[in-house]
Structures are given as C-alpha cells and as structure tokens.
C-alpha cells in the first residue's frame, strides 16, 4: 500500500488541478525522442558530482539556461544527499536507484531508496528566521521544482520521490 504526499507549485497554471493535469499529460505523452536514464548508485557522497554530470549530459541538447539547469541539479542533489545522510546514515554499503526522463517540455527525476521509518508528512518545515546548519534540503526541493511527490510502500520500506520540472510554459 502506498501513501502519498505532494507539493505542487501552481504559478502560471491557476490551480493545482490544472498543473497536475498538465504534468500528468506531459508524462503520459512523452515524445519518442525523450531521454531515459537509469542509475544504480552507491550511497556515498562522492557519487553526487557524478550524478550532476549525468544530468547535464541528459539535458545538454535542450539549451535550458543556467538557472533552470541549476534547479534540476540542485533538487536532485538535495534528494540524493538526504538519502545518503538521513536514510542510510553514510553507510555506503547501501545503494539507491535514480531514474530520469526528459523531453524538451518536462524533466522528471525519481529516486528510489529504502527507509522503513520515513513518514513524508513528518518532514519538518524550517523556520527561516532561525539560522541553522541543516534542514533546508526538502524546503529547497519544494521551492524550485513544480511537482514533488513522496510515496512509501509500508510492507517493503521502499520510498519513491518523484520531482518534476516543467521546462516550457504552456502557450
């Protein structure tokens, strides 16, 4: 059984439902020339730079611009850092999976990992008036991606984090 926890940015779409429908449509109607990439990654922070380079390679033909490219590198790195730091506690015997699908309209990255104790609704929301050294990763992800969806599988402890960035606004 899966439980879901979603964050959706609604700017430019008027309502959460319209944005959600648009993202669903973009994913369902991916063009034949969409790029698909799967990685099986060791739970070690040394892999993060490699992941960023793979992302750049996946989208280099799209001419996204520095800001958009940085957003998707940043969100993916934050997600993987959380897996390595919080779920795996720097145990590099653990590993996780990363799947990227991108067209010229949408970038979708999914992170699959094991964390039976993870409850998405319990992710703390940081108080930005209190200066702390951590706790900003998910806040950043939710603020730069258009759609963030955690789902957990209670029986196996498997977690899926899906993050979506729309690369072209609707005309």
């Amino acid at each position: 059984m899966f439980t879901y926890f979603q964050t959706i940015k609604v700017e430019n779409y008027g309502s959460k439902r319209r944005l959600h429908d648009r993202i669903k449509q973009l994913i369902e109607e991916l063009p034949a020339d969409a790029t698909y990439m799967k990685m099986h990654v060791q739970g070690n922070s040394e892999t993060l730079a490699l992941i960023r380079r793979v992302i750049v390679a996946c989208v280099q033909h799209l001419d996204l611009g520095a800001a958009l490219l940085n957003d998707i590198k940043l969100a993916t790195t934050e997600a993987c850092t959380n897996v390595i730091k919080h779920a795996y506690k720097f145990n590099d015997a653990m590993s996780f999976d990363l799947e990227i699908v991108t067209s010229d309209e949408v970038f979708v990255v999914e992170v699959f990992y094991h964390d039976p104790d993870f409850v998405p609704a319990n992710i703390p929301v940081p108080n930005l008036n209190e200066i702390k050294e951590g706790g900003l990763g998910v806040f950043i992800i939710r603020n730069i991606m258009d759609h963030v969806d955690y789902s957990t599988e209670e029986d196996s402890g498997r977690v899926r984090l899906q993050m979506v960035k729309i690369l072209k606004l609707r005309d």
């Binding site: 960023r52 940085n70 590198k73 940043l74 790195t77 934050e78 850092t81 200066i131 702390k132 050294e133 951590g134 900003l136 990763g137 806040f139 950043i140």
Partner: peptide, 13 residues
C-alpha cells in the same frame, strides 16, 4: 558554480 544546502550549512557553521 554550484552550492547546495550542505554547502550553505557549512558556511553557517
């Protein structure tokens, strides 16, 4: 050219 929340956290420290 790249900074994330872990880098920021270290700067705060």
């Amino acid at each position: 050219a790249y900074l994330d929340s872990s880098g920021l956290g270290m700067l705060v420290y």
